[in-house]
Computed example of a mutant assay.
Amino acid sequence: MIRVLLADDQALVRGAMAALLDMEADLQVVAEVGRGDEVVAAVRANAVEVALLDVQMPGLDGVAAARELRRGVPGCRVLMVTTFGRAGYLRQAMAAGALGFVVKDTPARQLADAVRRVHAGLRVVDPVLAAQSLAQGDSPLTERETDVLRAAADGGTVADVARDLHLSEGTVRNHLSSAIGKTGARTRAEAARLAAESGWLLG
């Protein structure tokens, strides 16, 4: 039996995935959580072998949760299962230690097979996302530009962003201007949207 954890903030999605996976003779869902910051404790408490993590969750996003699992419970394998099939998310998830990355509309049989393959230490990546990731390359944004754009995406003014990040307003404007240029956007709101869609703004 492969012991599985499901981490997703949507209870209906968790329930549906649990029902599908529990129909497999060799898979058993032993834990479910709705927040990223509950993953490590649940994995430890239930001797989980494969953790299925959503990308966007409260507490910690799936990429950060995968990173914590790699540090705290390195024997647990990670498979990202997400609605948001974005190349940037894929790259970050793999860098955080995930072995697999599939979208939620993956057929049940393929999802079960992905769990088995990840459990065996094999990589499983949605082929469309893999191609997009190769074509897109790494994020062009610096770490500070990413921070500024993420803060601006919440709708804060330049003064708000400067205060939150302990920067001068002039520095914030410079970083925003650079980020706008790198994303090919016309406004900071558009730059934030494009960067988010590319998966470049995860924490």
Score class of each variant (00 low, 15 high):
Ile2His: 02
Ala7Met: 04
Asp8His: 11
Leu12Glu: 10
Arg14Lys: 08
Met17Asp: 01
Ala19Lys: 11
Ala19Gln: 12
Leu20Phe: 04
Glu24His: 11
Val29Tyr: 07
Val33Pro: 09
Arg35Phe: 06
Arg35Ser: 09
Gly36Met: 10
Val43Asp: 10
Asn46Gln: 14
Asn46Trp: 12
Val50His: 04
Pro58Phe: 10
Asp61Tyr: 09
Gly62Met: 08
Ala66Pro: 07
Ala66Met: 08
Arg67Asn: 08
Arg67Trp: 10
Glu68Ala: 15
Arg71Cys: 12
Val78Pro: 03
Met80His: 01
Thr82Gly: 01
Thr82Pro: 01
Leu90Ile: 11
Arg91Ser: 13
Met94Gly: 04
Phe101Pro: 03
Thr106Ala: 11
Pro107Ala: 12
Pro107Val: 05
Pro107Glu: 12
Pro107Gly: 08
Gln110Gly: 04
Leu111Val: 00
Ala112Glu: 02
Arg116Gln: 06
Leu122Cys: 09
Arg123Lys: 12
Arg123Ile: 00
Asp126Gln: 08
Pro127Val: 08
Val128His: 12
Ala131Phe: 14
Gln136Glu: 15
Asp138Gln: 14
Ser139Thr: 15
Thr146Val: 13
Asp147Thr: 08
Ala151Leu: 05
Ala151His: 03
Ala153Ile: 09
Gly156Cys: 03
Val158Ser: 07
Val161Gly: 06
Ala162Met: 06
Ala162His: 05
Ala162Tyr: 06
Arg163Gln: 14
Leu167Thr: 05
Ser168Tyr: 06
Glu169His: 07
Ile180Asp: 00
Gly181Asp: 15
Lys182Pro: 06
Thr183Asp: 01
Gly184Asp: 08
Arg188Leu: 00
Ala192Asn: 02
Glu197Asn: 12
Trp200Ala: 02
